[in-house]
Amino acid sequence: MTNYAIRTENLVKTYGFGRKAIRAVDGLSLNVPEGSIYGLLGRNSAGKTTTIRMAMGLARPSSGSIEVLGLDPWPDPSRVAMLRQVAFVPEDKANIGLGARKLLELNRSFYPDTWSDALARKVVDRLELPLDTPFIKLSLGNKTKASLACAIAQRSRLLILDEPTTGLDPVALDALLRLLVEDCTADGRTIFLSSHQLAEIEQIADYIGIMDRGKILLEGPLDDIRASFRRVTVSGENLPSRGANILSARRDAHATQYVLRDAPDSFSADLAANGATILDSAPLSLNEIFLALCRKEEGVTEEAA
C-alpha cells in the first residue's frame, strides 16, 4: 500500500466573500507518495502557494481535506507533530532579517533531534553561501540559499519548497538539484516542490502535478506522463479535429499536427486504419505538455464562459 506524504481530497480554499470571493484552490485532489520528489507545476495564481500554505498550517481549507504525513496540519497538537517532521522554504525568502550564519544557528536550535551540522556545512559549501554577509547586503539568491540550507540541514521526513529556485544562478541551481537528489531523498524522505522552472523540475522529479486555476490538470509519475503524451503529424483526408484524447490539432497545408494524451498509439493506429499517413510521432517535453494542458484548459474555460 502506498503511503502518502501529502494527500488532499476535494480541497477548496476561498478568499473573500460574495461577489468578490476568489477560489484560489478549487476541488484539488493531490497524492504525494512518500519517498518521491514531487514537482507541483503551474502558472502564476494557479493555487500552488495556497496549497502549500494549507499544508503548512498557515491557511485553513474552506472545504475538503488535507493530510500531511497522515496529520491534519491546521489544529494543534497535530500541527506541531507535523511541523516536527517537515522542513519548509516559503515563497517569500525575506526570512526574519538574519544573516545566514545566525539563521542556521537559530534553525538548529528548533530541530535538535534531526539537524545535521555536517549537512549544513555541505550545503553552505556547495551553494557558496556567504555566511557572514549582513542581511541587508544579501542578494535575493543568497537569501534563497540561506532558506534552503536551513531546510535541507533539518533532515526532515518531508521537505516542502515553494519556488526554491528564486534568484538562483545556473551554477547554484545545478548544485541545488544535485543536493536534493543526493542528500534529501535518503531514508524514504520526500521532497515536494512548486515551481515554474519546468526544465529543472523535469531533471529531478519522479512525480508531477500540474495545476491551473486551483485545479489539478494532471498528476502521476513523470515517466508515465511522458509516455502518455505524443505529438503526431498526420496527412490524409477527413481527419478529426476533436476527440477525447486530442489536446490540440493544428492544420497546415500538407499535414495536421496533433498533441495527444492517453493512448496516443491506439489513436495513431485508428487513423492509419482509416487511410491516414503517420508522418511523425515524437514524445513531448514537460514544458510542451504543460503548455498544451494549460491552453486546453483555457479553451475549455472560454467555451464555458
Binding site: 498550517g57 497538537p77 506541531v80 517569500d92 526574519i96
Partner: peptide
C-alpha cells in the same frame, strides 16, 4: 509577514 510565517512553521503550539 515573514516573521509570522517563520514563527508559525516552527514546532511550537
Amino acid at each position: 509577514g515573514a516573521q509570522a510565517s517563520f514563527n508559525r512553521t516552527r514546532p511550537l503550539t
